[in-house]
Simulated assay, not measured.
Amino acid sequence: MPSLPRFTSFLYTRAIWRRFALTRFVGALALTALSLVVGVGGFMWVEGYSLLEAFYMTMITVSTVGFGEIRPMSPAGRLFVSLYIFFNLLMLAYLLSVLTTYIFDGGLRTMFAMLRNDQEIRALRQHIIVCGFGRNGRKAYHELRANGAQVVIVEQSEELVKDATEGTGEAIMAVFGDATLDETLRAAGVERARALITALPKDADNVFVALTARELSPGITIVARASLKSSEPKLLRAGADSVVMPDEIGGSHMANLIMRPEVIRFLDMISGLGPNKLRLEELSSSELRPELRSLSIRELDVRSRTGATVIGLKHQGGDFTVSPPADLVPAPGDVLLFLGTDAQILTLLQLFRAG
C-alpha cells in the first residue's frame, strides 16, 4: 500500500479540495441518485406501477436481495429490468473502485490530512504568506523558516512544490490556487497574516496580488518582486511597502565582486551564504526588558555580555544612525540593530528581550 508522501502536508483551497478530493465521491453519489430516479421512473412508465410499488421494485433490484416481483412483468418490463441491472452493476463497480482508492491508496488519509491542515492554517496568526514558489519565493521561504517564522505558500503548480521538497522530508503548508484571487488569499489567512511576499514571474500578477492583499488586509506588510524598473511605481501604488528587483541586485552584486570583493564576502556572511555565517537582528526599545529601557548603549554593554555588536539605530521618525554613540539612550519607538553569530544573537535575545 503506497504511503502518504511526506511532502503532501499541504493545504488546498476549498474550491480545489472539492474539485479533486471529492469529485469521485460526488460522482458516485450522483450516479446512485440517478439510478434510483431512473428505476422509479422506468417502473412507473413501463409497468404502470404506483410510486410506492416502483420504489419497492427499484430498491430490491438495486440491492439484489432476490425478493419476488409484485406481479408478473411484461416483455418490455423484463427488458427494462435487464438493462437496469446491467447499469447498476457498472455503477457498483465504479463505487467500489472509488472506495478502494480512498481506503487502500491513501486518498482517504489525504483528505483527512487536508482537513487537519485546513484547521492548522485557520489557527495561524501573524504568519507570513509567500506567493510563488520559484527561485525567489523558495529562497524567501527557506530564509523565513530558518528564522522561525510560520509560512504559508500560495502556488498554482502542485508539481513545483513537490519537486522542490521531494526527498527533504519537509512539511509545507500551501494553498494551491491563483494568488491574484480573493478566495485564494483568504484561504491562506491574509487577514491574519503580518506580511506577504509576492514573487510571481509576471509583474502584472504581482501588482494584482499587492492590490488584493492591501484591500483584504490594510495593515499587512507587502514585499513585491519586479522584473522591470517601470513596474516599481505601479507596485508601490498598488499597496506594496517595498519592491525588490532580483536582476538588478544580481548585476550590482557581480560588479561589486570585482571592485570590492572583501565587502561582498562580508555581506555574503551576513546573508548566510559564506562559510562563517553572521546574523542581523533588531530589537525595538519596547521589546527590551523593562529595567534596560532607560540605559544608554554603553550601559547595555552588549559587546562584552553577548559578543554581538550594535551597528545601527533607527529612530522613531525614520532616520538611521550608523554606529550610534555609546552615550545614546534609545528613545521610545527606536529600534536597535545588532550583528553577530547565531550563538551571539541567541544570547542577546535571551538576556535583553522581555519574556
Rank of each mutant, 00 (worst) to 15 (best):
P75M: 05
S294A: 14
H127Y: 04
Y56Q: 08
Y94P: 02
L31M: 10
M245C: 09
E170V: 10
A193S: 13
Y84R: 06
R237H: 03
Y102D: 15
T180G: 11
N206C: 04
Q156R: 15
L90A: 13
E170I: 03
S296V: 09
V161E: 07
L108S: 10
M73N: 08
L235I: 05
V37H: 11
S35I: 12
E232Q: 06
K229S: 12
V244D: 03
G307D: 02
L31S: 09
L216Q: 02
K229C: 07
V81F: 09
R225D: 03
R192A: 12
G39K: 03
T8P: 00
M59W: 11
G355L: 14
L336Y: 00
I103C: 06
D268N: 12
R305M: 00
F67H: 05
Y102Q: 05
A204S: 14
T341D: 04
I153N: 01
G250A: 04
V151C: 01
R214N: 02
L52V: 14
R18F: 02
L185N: 02
F87K: 14
L292M: 15
A93R: 13
L99G: 11
F208S: 15
E248D: 07
D241F: 12
M114L: 13
L51E: 11
R116I: 10
V38F: 03
L196G: 09
E248M: 07
Y49L: 10
I16F: 14
R192E: 11
L328G: 00
A204L: 12
F80I: 09
D182G: 12
L200S: 12
V263L: 15
